[in-house]
């Protein structure tokens, strides 16, 4: 079982692209015969460690929008490994993926491989629909999956 945690605000244009991409990823993984538990949330919270720590979870993929700036970003989908050693929280209310994984590790003794998949976003106005940059990146999901090892996300391999 792969746990996908997709988060963002679907009423703030590109901010909701992570949630949307989560659905796309589930579709793609299911097509390959994988079992998937998709969790859509507004933000990461400590109790998300509970479904992560469930029996039979082979890996976790966090899906989010990242703020992309012209000249500093390649505007493509990006996958990075998530540490289970804990992250930091600023003055807001969210946790980062590493903190959620840390909860699962320390409280429940589970640390399946975890990844952060991000889609670039530039438009965070009120409303639905995505910017051209984000749409373009979303359409690259099949390419990205083809470039990853077959066993991803369960097994580690080279990631972009």
């Amino acid at each position: 079982m792969i746990v996908i945690i997709a988060y963002g605000n679907t009423l703030r244009r590109d901010d909701g692209a992570g949630v949307f991409l989560g659905g796309m990823l589930r579709g793609a993984l299911k097509k390959n015969g994988r079992e998937v538990n998709l969790i859509e949330v507004h933000q990461l919270t400590p109790e998300l460690s509970i479904p992560i720590a469930e029996e039979g979870v082979s890996s976790v993929v966090f899906v989010d929008t990242r703020v992309a700036e012209e000249g500093k970003d390649n505007f493509d989908l990006r996958v990075t490994a998530v540490s289970t050693q804990g992250g930091r929280s600023g003055c807001g209310h969210h946790l980062d993926p590493a903190s959620v994984m840390a909860y699962a590790r320390v409280l429940y003794g589970k640390w399946p491989p975890a990844w952060l998949l991000t889609v670039p976003g530039v438009d965070f106005q009120h409303g639905e629909g995505f910017s051209a940059f984000t749409q373009q990146a979303l359409s690259r999901l099949p390419h990205l999956l083809a470039s990853l090892p077959r066993e991803w996300p369960d097994k580690e391999g080279p990631v972009s």
Partner: peptide, 16 residues
Amino acid sequence: DPCLSCSTHAVGQMPM
């Protein structure tokens, strides 16, 4: 306990 992320979730997620 400010609600800075009133609309997008990512506040503070970036390096300070």
